[in-house]
Nucleic acid binder design. Structure first.
Lengths: 104, 104
DNA sequence: TAAAAGTACTTTGTAAAACAAAGTATAAAT
DNA sequence: ATTTATACTTTGTTTTACAAAGTACTTTTA
């Protein structure tokens, strides 16, 4: 007896993580501060959500310098893109037609 | 400076609540046990999420009898439907094209 | 008719998450 | 030398999620 919500990945339950992934699906990379502005959250909060996605191997980090300023940017991994697309498909499926069958 | 995720409603962050709302958008009413089977969670867990949605005035409860058996069923309120549609629109907007503009 | 089982919870307790705020390390600009 | 910026980490509090057990009522079943 499998539930209809089981294909939704727990990592994407959260709005911040949803925002991060969406941003990184469209912009193939984005730096810390742009993301902070985009999401309008504190840096500690952002860092922790980024770390959570990193830990799942859904995003990866690039530490570089722009000119002489340190700049950390993020991008999705193939795993991350696949997982996110999967999640969106599950969402779509969930939202449309969960008709109750006469039996079961 | 408004974040791109602010139109996502907190009540719908959770997969179970997402499942409940989806089920109730398609089936205009559903009873406790059908929902429990559909979502495959414990009854305590389901009850608490139902209560959370009730508290937001997103769903309402009907306590009736079918034959002689007590039967509790749930349905969305207009408020709930509106909020959920809003959430889905925000989701859709979030997921598609969050292009980084040169300024800001 | 007494015991077992089903419905729809509530209560209790624990573990995990979310988050803000403050602190830290490094480097750069003034 | 002091201030400012970047990108965190740490600390601590509040909120959530959840399972498991308990409860009140009813209804089968033995």
């Amino acid at each position: 007896m499998k539930g209809i919500i089981e294909n939704l990945h727990k990592a994407f339950d959260n709005r911040v993580r949803l925002g991060i992934m969406s941003a990184l699906m469209v912009n193939e990379r984005m730096d810390f501060n742009s993301m902070k502005d985009l999401l309008d959250i504190t840096d500690g909060n952002l860092a922790s959500h980024l770390k959570a996605l990193e830990k799942e191997d859904f995003i990866l980090v690039n530490k570089t310098f722009i000119g002489r300023k340190p700049n950390t940017s993020y991008q999705t991994t193939p795993t991350g893109r696949k997982a996110f697309e999967n999640h969106l498909n599950a969402l779509e499926k969930l939202i449309s037609s969960q008709q109750m069958k006469p039996d079961e």
